[in-house]
Nucleic acid binder design. Structure first.
Lengths: 135, 135
DNA sequence: AGTGACCCTATAGTGACTACAGAGTCAACA
DNA sequence: TGTTGACTCTGTAGTCACTATAGGGTCACT
């Protein structure tokens, strides 16, 4: 399977696939006589795993660790739990801050119901005042 | 006020302050005889405004636009509304995806209640299966 | 031979910082 | 005067996960 086919099969960009290979997440593919990469089913499986973990917004370094666990079935899975827990914590912290942010932005947006000049803009006024309150 | 004092006053890193100056968000400070930057109250005010907008996760390019509106009180504030609306939309989209992500991670985490080996790990199993489902 | 789709490597850019190297300045102290 | 630690400067590079581009090769088809 050439790189374009692997892209079609997984939805991962060609350049990203090369990047993952360079970063050591994917094993280097065998090469055809013309220098083209030749991927096999194991690559497909591994890239899908990587892509799925990325969809969970896990950092590449941690995905590498997960892949190590896949490669070592005798390893203790406490560390897998820890990685997922850490990611879950990051996501929850992030969620809270995004909620607060949405609230702030909504309140800010409500300061200006009609179009008029910047001088009269409740949004700008609020931003300036808030900045002064913090200065 | 020297750069360290501005940092103390706003909580913005010294290097970040220099970065903002380089990017044109902050006007270049006057220099003392020894080459040190000398900031005034206007800089303090402007940096606080920038920092507040950053706290709202607005991109720097948009903060620049907001600062232009502050500088031009006669301008129409419809564009300010638009910028805030766009940011609000981005945040809401992001919130939805973070919620879905939290749910997925929680479900994944629930696959493994006890420590055992990676071979038996429900989390890994689920990740591999999910990746195969998508491959 | 020409052409378009595909592939290659190397390098640089994105956004918003952040760190580091090497050097100058300053005030306090011995 | 010399030393020292805190502060400042510019320039450059690195972070993270991509993404784009330049310049060139390969391949199948016309």
């Amino acid at each position: 399977m050439r790189i374009g086919e692997l892209h079609q099969a997984t939805g991962v960009n060609i350049e990203t696939i090369r990047y993952y290979e360079k970063e050591g997440l994917l094993a280097a593919a065998a090469r055809s006589a013309n220098g083209y990469r030749n991927y096999n089913a194991a690559h497909l499986e591994r890239l899908s795993f990587i892509r799925h973990c990325r969809a969970l917004e896990m950092p590449l370094a941690e995905i590498k660790q997960m892949l190590d666990f896949v490669a070592h079935p005798e390893a203790d899975c406490g560390d897998i739990n820890r990685l997922i827990d850490e990611q879950l914590t990051r996501v929850r912290v992030r969620l809270r801050s995004m909620h607060a942010l949405e609230k702030q932005l909504s309140q800010l947006r409500a300061q200006c119901g009609k179009s008029h000049t910047a001088a009269e803009c409740g949004i700008l006024h609020e931003l300036v005042v808030a900045a002064q309150g913090e200065a």
